[in-house]
């Protein structure tokens, strides 16, 4: 018998009596205060939220990252970027990426997470290999909790998708929080409020 069949057979033999599948509620969401909660959650996670308009972002980025040379953007209508992600064949070429600018789909107020599917990344690696990350998010795209968020997205629609909640970090040395583990050293969220 194949290992597959042996495992499935053993599981079938040993599984307990049927237990019904419980319904998953969305849980109550407050009607207002989404933006405040989101900003607070991002702050807890080490991110920075800037409420702004689309045409102000390029200038804000210049001021925040004056030394960034290699900039990739998948939000071309907002920030031009210095390179074309689509021209990159091998993600290793992104090793010197200073900044990635991309759009988020849904933002979660209770934990600051932002959903980004592969389609918004060009290369999956770009989100993790960039030294800094900036995400543009529509304030209308905020929901209260993860249940709301999963109700709005289709996790299987794209080959890959990720909730990002803050810059990369670690506390593996004596529980001291250090921002900038392997991924981006900072996360700036531009929340479009108009």
């Amino acid at each position: 018998m194949s290992s597959r069949d042996a495992i499935l057979q053993a599981v079938r033999q040993n599984r307990p009596d049927p237990v019904p599948r419980p319904p998953t509620p969305l849980f109550a969401s407050p009607d207002e205060g989404l933006t405040t909660a989101f900003v607070e959650a991002q702050k807890r996670a080490g991110g920075t939220v800037v409420s702004t308009t689309a045409d102000a972002i390029a200038t804000l980025l210049d001021a925040r990252f004056p030394d960034a040379r290699v900039i990739a953007s998948t939000a071309g209508d907002i920030v031009a970027g210095s390179m074309d992600l689509h021209a990159v064949a091998d993600p290793h070429e992104l090793a010197d990426l200073d900044l990635l600018v991309c759009r988020g789909v849904v933002g979660v107020a209770e934990n600051g997470a932002i959903w980004i599917p592969k389609a918004h990344l060009g290369h999956r690696a770009a989100l993790f290999i960039a030294q800094h990350l900036a995400i543009v998010l529509d304030a209308n795209a905020l929901v209260w909790n993860l249940h709301d968020a999963y109700a709005r997205i289709d996790v299987a629609e794209d080959s890959f998708g990720v909730f990002v909640a803050g810059p990369s970090k670690t506390a593996d040395i004596e529980q001291s929080l250090v921002i900038g583990a392997h991924g981006p050293r900072s996360l700036t969220v531009f929340l479009l409020t108009e």
Partner: peptide
């Protein structure tokens, strides 16, 4: 949604891990 709301809070007291990656 259910498990992720519990996992990081129980583990380290964070609201969520920084990266929750979905591979399909």
């Amino acid at each position: 949604g259910v498990f992720l709301r519990l996992l990081a809070r129980s583990a380290t007291g964070q609201d969520l891990t920084v990266y929750t990656s979905h591979f399909h």
